[in-house]
Design a protein around this nucleic acid. Structure first.
Lengths: 337, 337
DNA sequence: CTGTTAGCGCCTTCAT
DNA sequence: ATGAAGGCGCTAACAG
């Protein structure tokens, strides 16, 4: 027995049977749900009661066919298992749910072809899409956006609405912090080459280091994973940097592990800063990192998308979310030379 | 410009326009896609070419309305941001995609009410559901399963198909390993109270410790998070255990942090074992942990579900996936008393 | 305020 | 092997 008092939804309870039961037309039943404002409140109530009692559940497919809207949006990400994305997905799903929308999830496995396939598949059956860290060419994204509502996250394409998780301020703070600790040589360990985020961070470190007279070595974790972070350590050491800023927390942890393997102490010998703050607090030693507003991004992206779906014309929306440095245990004074 | 040679999908390309274009009936066009075996190969080819050229995309809603099947399944999890789930989700999505199905994702926020809401919402519009670590009462799950195809992951309800990520063997191996290292007192730090997984692990440690004459202290991280793990450390220390098995890697890391705060060395003073092996390898120090076949679970759950959807009658399927201990850096010989 | 009348785009018997 | 006709369940003018 379920706890609800209604009879269990017998398949095949349509507006038709409710209508017959109540001696009204099917339109009336339909309106009781979609446009109750057009009905006498009393009627609405009667219909709803009958529906409840008969275990009626609207058929979404039928509704979608009739209205042209599915009540569903798509969300595609490069890799669900990368801890950067779950907070975004979670917030996006919650936001959609709050507006009575469902979300279809796609994982492109960092593969543009797969991403394209997913988008084409989804495009025909959702009201709009959120594309996170898309790996697709700009022209293609503009193309998609022209046909259906699209919101980008962490991809800056003019004329398509986008929310950007901006690490600039956080990176700046990190460099200042390191400079104040007396560091003179810094290494940046980049992530996915060419990604919007990586480019942004490269620019930010470059600018900040220039401003503070810090020598900067540009490295790249390949692949952009924990293992890639481990391997990058030789390069870091070769550069004689006393501080490292990594593209993300995962790579930072790889760097940490690589450093430890070689007997380099953190933060005594070398300081390390991560980025994302998504697993940083849950690991030992606690990683000093740049905290990003990922959840906000998911939430906002969906809100914007649903506004678009609702017909609001948005003119080149570009929402930038700031970041900040969070001090924990992996940074310290530069060692004496 | 897109790379495909086909014209861009003009909205409103239906089987009707293809039919007219080719001078055939709509049935023929329809069959070219859904039942090509009923058509002359040559006809199929002609139709497909025209469709391609006109940028035809089947309308899923219409198809769903006509056939009663949506080509979509639902996947609901308690918390996307918990690193245990993404590998499952990822594999499930990939498996669905491979069979041309879409997946709707729901996050219940560990909340049974929310889970119920999501399920009701989804139930009407998907062909089947995968429920991961469901927090719902058994009776209710059976009820749902009676109406639509349902596959459970990590929840053992008889007569509903389920795939269980079994930690028993791994826990056993962990206890043996610890016993061989000379540990006499062990603490188990449990997770979400009452969850299937936690119960299973409790049983497994209890049995193994009994077999090896190890004194066991049962603790519980509350909440079942990193922070909860940190706080549980006082209890661990009070029990004078020299080894700890934690419910999952996240809690294990909390324990690690708590231990470090109090100056307890790992593994010199205390050994720690996690469970899941999902973030364990990507963190420093590398955590000895019980490796679970999460991705397999997602994959299998979806396969089974789609078999069910396809009409195969499954009689009380119960698939159990074994686990194994993975040695890394957080276990060592018991300290001399 | 409510009923009537047409579809939405596709699939599917039933004929041919 | 293909066409004709009806219906899936709902919404949306248009009347009244």
């Amino acid at each position: 027995m379920t706890s609800t008092s209604s009879g269990r939804p017998r398949a095949g309870t349509t507006i038709g049977v409710i209508a017959r039961e109540l001696g009204v037309s099917r339109s009336t039943v339909s309106r009781a749900f979609s446009r109750p404002d057009l009905l006498r409140p009393e009627t609405v109530e009667r219909v709803r009661a009958a529906a409840e009692q008969l275990g009626y559940e609207a058929n979404q497919a039928a509704r979608a066919l009739a209205t042209g809207r599915s009540g569903t949006i798509a969300l595609v990400v490069p890799d669900i298992a990368n801890p950067f994305f779950p907070p975004i997905i979670r917030a996006a799903q919650a936001a959609a749910d709050g507006r009575d929308y469902c979300v279809m999830l796609g994982d492109s496995a960092e593969n543009p072809q797969q991403e394209q396939r997913l988008i084409s598949r989804f495009a025909t059956q959702v009201d709009g899409l959120v594309l996170v860290s898309s790996r697709l060419p700009t022209a293609e994204l503009m193309d998609y956006a022209r046909r259906r509502p699209v919101v980008l996250v962490n991809r800056d394409v003019s004329n398509v609405p986008r929310v950007l998780i901006d690490s600039t301020t956080g990176v700046g703070e990190a460099v200042v912090h390191l400079a104040e600790l007396g560091h003179k040589r810094l290494a940046y360990v980049g992530g996915t080459a060419g990604s919007w985020s990586d480019q942004q961070r490269r620019r930010a470190v470059t600018a900040a280091c220039a401003a503070y007279g810090i020598a900067l070595t540009m490295l790249q974790a390949r692949p952009a994973t924990y293992a890639g972070g481990v391997e990058t350590v030789d390069g870091v050491l070769a550069s004689r940097s006393s501080a490292i800023i990594a593209f993300d927390d995962v790579i930072a942890h790889g760097v940490l592990a690589g450093l430890a393997e070689r007997g380099v102490r953190v933060p005594d010998d070398v300081s390390v800063v991560g980025c994302d703050d998504v697993s940083a607090a849950m690991t030992y030693p606690p990683l000093t990192t740049i905290s990003l507003r990922c959840a906000d991004a998911g939430d906002i992206a969906v809100s914007v998308l649903l506004d678009l779906v609702g017909g609001r014309r948005v003119t080149d929306l570009r929402c930038s979310l700031d970041s900040k440095l969070v001090l924990r245990a992996t940074t310290g004074p530069a060692p004496a030379r």
